[in-house]
């Protein structure tokens, strides 16, 4: 028995029957960075029927340390991540139907992206997109396997299974600042751990086994691990998963708004109204990676990757030196999460 999936079929809890189910699945991966690369490679090797990968970014040298699908040539060619990912994934398994979408995930396209998929794998780099996918997942009843990393730490949680709380139940407010790989760094082994937990749960879900439903965290450097049964945190009035859900993150008003400032080569981002801005905390987090940092009671200003950036206390962020709103949003995600 030497067929492509023989070793996976020999694993009794999958078997030939489970493999058929895996081959029928259409998986959506949001993000083609480190977690997205790792999940996509495992899922394509495992023989999922169809994979859709969405990513808004192009490749950069700083990606190669951990984003396993990409090569130096891809960076030199300035390929969009989703395009480079498809190229490599096709070399790995040409029988998988791979669809790539180079786009920003927004309130406008979220439902369309999720619709018709078997499940969603989280590989995004910011909390706002996670809450957006959480709402799309709850509205359309498609499970969302969350994963996030920073430094040597990561966490996983499957959303949309049974009576468990959704991400909105757990977060209730948008954090002013989350740690990101661009501010606190990241080591590659934690990517593998988090993606491994996500994909193992995906396999279990696809073959009809019970999914490990705990919120889990891992720190590969300190050796700390936690697993919490979050069932008590389900909110009966949650706007995203209760009976009367309004799916607030699917409305344009709850998203970061963007505007190109005419003639100024500047994009203005307006953070969602319920997102608190803590100027000092923001300044502390970005301090190691920016220059010309100014922090006063009205604003934080700095230089980052050739752009002058100003964050005001009212939640407006100016990104000078670009007219590209997607690029501006990527810069904000790198700095704020």
């Amino acid at each position: 028995m030497n067929s492509r999936y023989s070793r996976q079929e020999l694993f009794k809890l999958i078997g030939e029957k489970g493999q058929k189910k895996i081959c029928q699945a259409h998986v959506l991966i949001i993000g083609a960075g480190a977690l997205g690369s790792a999940s996509a490679e495992m899922l394509v090797r495992a023989g999922v029927g169809k994979l859709t990968i969405v990513d808004r970014d192009i490749l950069d040298w700083s990606n190669l340390q951990r984003q396993q699908l990409y090569t130096e040539k891809d960076v030199i060619d300035q390929l969009p991540k989703a395009v480079a990912a498809k190229k490599r994934l096709y070399e790995i398994n040409s029988t998988v139907d791979i669809e790539t979408i180079v786009a920003d995930v927004t309130a406008e396209n979220a439902e369309e992206l999720v619709s018709g998929k078997t499940l969603i794998v989280d590989a995004t780099d910011n909390i706002e997109t996670r809450l957006l996918m959480n709402d799309a997942s709850r509205k359309l009843g498609i499970p969302f396997f969350m994963g996030a990393v920073v430094a040597s730490y990561g966490l996983t949680y499957p959303i949309g299974l049974g009576e468990l709380p959704c991400l909105h139940c757990l977060l209730d407010t948008l954090p002013p600042q989350t740690l990101t790989c661009d501010t606190a760094g990241v080591i590659s082994p934690i990517i593998q751990v988090v993606a491994a937990h996500q994909v193992a749960n995906v396999f279990k879900y696809l073959v009809g086994e019970e999914v490990d439903s705990k919120l889990k965290s891992f720190d590969l450097w300190t050796g700390e691990q936690a697993a919490i049964d979050v069932t008590p945190l389900r909110r009966s009035d949650c706007p995203s998963c209760s009976k009367d859900a309004s799916y607030p993150f699917l409305s344009k008003e709850s998203q970061t708004r963007t505007a190109v400032l005419c003639g100024r080569d500047t994009v203005q981002l307006t953070l969602p109204p319920d997102r608190e801005v803590e100027l000092r905390q923001f300044a502390e987090a970005i301090h190691p990676i920016v220059t010309g940092l100014i922090c006063n009671m009205h604003l934080v200003a700095c230089n980052f990757n050739g752009h002058r950036i100003v964050l005001f206390r009212d939640g407006r962020m100016l990104i000078h030196g670009t007219k590209d709103v997607v690029k501006a949003k990527m810069i904000a995600s790198k700095l704020m999460g």
Partner: peptide, 27 residues
Amino acid sequence: EIVQKDQYDHPIRERDQVEMIHFVGGG
């Protein structure tokens, strides 16, 4: 046992088993 946000004055005692999971942004 989960400790809700409004109960963060919950005491911590010798030999307690505490688990804390914080959310991060990266991926």
